[in-house]
């Protein structure tokens, strides 16, 4: 790799308590291969200790570091600076939308966790619930099963980062909307296997609230494709309702 250095100006959203919002600028020397989160952490370490931001794993498995970078929802720990600006350019960093701001870049994601809890979205599920399609590298399509232990389990794709909720225009006007991640969590379990979910998602705050902007799928960093899953869930709901109707006759 290279020792290439860029000078980049970060324009950072700031908010403390009831004080009005302001934007602070910090000019940093960065490597273009560094990730946006690295720069944010450096701003905290060397420029302004009062900066508040959320992060934990730094490799896209925890979902804590979602922010809006130049207006687009990004998982900052895996967004290379190279992708969002150029040498001498700027990067605008703001908190996610559609959640309350705790302070600066950190938001309160209870709404998402609440919704995930309501649909009992599984954090760990059998491998075949979301198969790995492999993309050419000897895909373990028929994944060999561990002999004694039974089925392989896998941490769910959804890392509960909230990017989809932030990008969803409807989530901004309807705080009670379950949101893309939770509906995707419901779809993965399938209503046929888990009939209790039907009443949770077949309502105004569930699948029918979606207005098909597909922003959730566009920003999801973790291959969940919530937009597609919401639509598939609608299909499941209708199928269940029709079945129930026919069954009652």
């Amino acid at each position: 790799m290279s020792d290439e250095k860029w000078t980049v100006t970060f324009i950072v959203f700031r908010k403390k308590d009831e004080q009005p919002v302001r934007y602070d600028t910090f000019t940093l020397e960065v490597s273009p291969n560094e990730y946006v989160l690295d720069a944010v952490e450096r701003i905290w370490a060397f420029h302004d200790r009062s900066l508040v931001f959320a992060h934990a794993c730094h490799h896209s498995t925890c979902g804590a570091c979602g922010m809006r970078v130049n207006g687009v929802e990004r998982l900052t720990c895996i967004t290379p600076i190279r992708e969002v600006t150029r040498n001498g350019g700027t990067v605008r960093v703001e908190p996610l939308r559609n959640f309350p701001v705790v302070s600066d870049l950190a938001v309160d994601m209870s709404r998402l966790y609440q919704a995930m809890d309501v649909v009992h979205a599984q954090a760990v599920h059998p491998l075949d619930a979301a198969p790995l399609e492999g993309d050419g590298i000897r895909p373990p399509r028929q994944v060999p099963q561990p002999e004694e232990e039974g089925e392989f389990l896998r941490l769910a794709d959804c890392i509960e980062c909230g990017l989809c909720v932030s990008a969803c225009p409807v989530a901004g006007t309807d705080p009670a909307y379950l949101g893309p991640a939770a509906l995707a969590g419901a779809q993965l379990q399938s209503i046929a296997r888990n009939p209790d979910l039907l009443s949770v998602v077949d309502c105004a705050e569930g699948v029918w609230r979606c207005h098909s902007a597909y922003e959730c799928t566009a920003v999801c960093p973790s291959n969940v494709q919530p937009g597609w899953r919401i639509m598939d869930l609608r299909r499941q709901v209708v199928a269940q309702r029709i079945k129930a109707l026919l069954g009652q006759r």
Binding site: R68, N70, G71, V72, E73, P95, L96, R97, N98, F99, P100, V101, V107, D108, A167, P169, G172, T173, P175, S212, A213, Y214, E215, T217, A218, V219, G227
Partner: peptide, 21 residues
């Protein structure tokens, strides 16, 4: 708590939106 959102204004702001948006 108040959501960080411009409400219905965000419906019409094309900045940062993708094709579906």
């Amino acid at each position: 708590k108040k959501l960080h959102s411009r409400g219905v204004l965000d419906w019409f702001d094309p900045r940062g939106r993708q094709v579906g948006g």
